[in-house]
Structure formats: structure tokens, C-alpha cells
Amino acid sequence: MNGVELFLLGRTLMKIGEEALPEPPGGADRHAGSARLVLVVASDIAAHPDTAVGEIAARTGLPQSQVSSAVARLKEAGSVRTAPDPADRRRVLVRQTADVSERVAQVRAAGIEDALTIALGSDDPQRLREVSEALDVLARNLLPQPGVLESHRAGIVSPPE
């Protein structure tokens, strides 16, 4: 696989992920760019608890205004909470809430089987299992884990060999 193929695979996986998400309330377009933006911000917050909006913008490459809007939507949905930074009261820190809203629970519980079946053009159980297992391996190895990146950056944990 080369960089172009990896990029195209990533785009295909994003489309499958979008297809797997349940319809938003009120008939909103689930494929809207703002919905993807909120997912990117929510993912970054999950990987980096107690983070500032500016830090999220720096990590994701998104404009700070878009990150602020996404945080506001997540806060309204009950997915995140904000609090002043005790070290610098001018900054606001964002973290996931311990309580999960009904919508967040619905999104997290959404399975990918139907979306994979459509993407593969087949409902062959062996093929679905094989692709699902490959996705599990990728997720286990590539998704950021809370605290791991910070530990590596601080030199607390040795990088994998």
C-alpha cells in the first residue's frame, strides 16, 4: 500500500462510518460537514481530556471558531462539559461528561454491519467477519488512547519498538 491508497482507504472508511451513524434528530443531514467536524472535535476531546479549544484547533488543524462551535454543540448535547483552567482562569478546559446522553449512547451503540454490507456489496458472513476483524486490529493499533500520547511526549513511557 502506498500513501495515495492509504488516503483513499481512509476516505472510504470515513464514508462507511458516516453511513453507520444513526440519523440525527429532526431529519438533519447526517452527512453535513458540520456533523463530521463535531465528530473530529469529540474524538480529539476523548483522546485529550481537560484540553483547551486552542489546543484542539492546533491538533486538528481546524479554525478555532469551528472548534468553538463544535464544542458548543457537544455541550448542548450533554457530551462534554467545560470548566475554567485552574492554572489560567482565562482559558476554558473541555472534557467528556461521565454521564452519557441518549443521543451519545445511540451513536456509540450504532453497529457497522449494515454499512459494511453496503460498502462490500455482499452479505457473506465470512467476508464481513474478516473485514470487521481487520478493522478491530487497525482500531486497536491506530486509534489514540487517552493519556498515551501525552505520556510519550513527556518521555514517561518509552515508544513502542
Rank of each mutant, 00 (worst) to 15 (best):
R36M: 07
R36P: 01
S79K: 01
A87V: 08
A119H: 09
R11Y: 04
R30K: 15
T60H: 06
D114P: 00
G27R: 06
R11W: 03
G147S: 01
M14G: 13
A134F: 02
V131S: 00
G54T: 10
A32P: 06
V94F: 02
M14P: 04
V94Y: 00
L13W: 07
V100N: 02
S122P: 02
H152N: 03
A119E: 02
S65P: 00
S132R: 12
H152S: 03
S101F: 14
L128N: 07
A35G: 05
R153C: 05
E76G: 12
R129V: 08
E130G: 05
R129Q: 09
L135K: 00
L138Q: 11
P22Q: 04
V92N: 13
S132Y: 00
L8I: 14
Q66Y: 10
M14A: 14
G147V: 00
E102R: 15
I16K: 02
R73W: 08
Q96G: 11
D114T: 14
L13Q: 09
A35L: 08
L93P: 00
F7I: 11
A134R: 09
G17A: 10
G26K: 07
S34F: 15
E19L: 09
G54L: 08
P84A: 13
H48M: 05
S151Q: 14
E113P: 01
P25A: 06
V104W: 09
S151V: 00
P24H: 05
S132N: 00
D123V: 01
V100T: 15
I56R: 00
P22I: 13
V157H: 06
R91T: 07
V131M: 06
L37C: 14
H31L: 10
V100K: 13
R140Y: 03
P24L: 13
P49N: 04
I156V: 13
Q96W: 08
R127L: 13
G121R: 09
R140E: 10
A35Q: 05
A32T: 05
T117S: 11
G78S: 07
L138R: 03
V4A: 15
E102N: 04
P159F: 09
A105D: 10
L138G: 08
L128P: 01
E113H: 12
S151G: 03
R103Q: 14
E19H: 11
I45W: 00
A77T: 06
D114R: 15
A58Y: 06
T51M: 09
N141Q: 12
E161V: 14
V137P: 01
E19M: 13
V137A: 12
A57V: 02
I45Q: 01
R73T: 11
R129P: 02
R91F: 03
V67P: 03
I16Q: 00
D85Y: 08
P86K: 12
L6N: 09
G27A: 09
E18I: 11
D85E: 05
K75L: 11
H48F: 08
Q126I: 13
A139N: 07
R108A: 15
R103P: 01
R140G: 10
V67Q: 08
L9K: 09
G155K: 05
A20R: 04
D85K: 00
P84G: 14
S132Q: 11
S132V: 04
P160L: 05
V131H: 02
V80D: 01
E23W: 08
Q145A: 15
V131P: 03
M1K: 07
V107C: 09
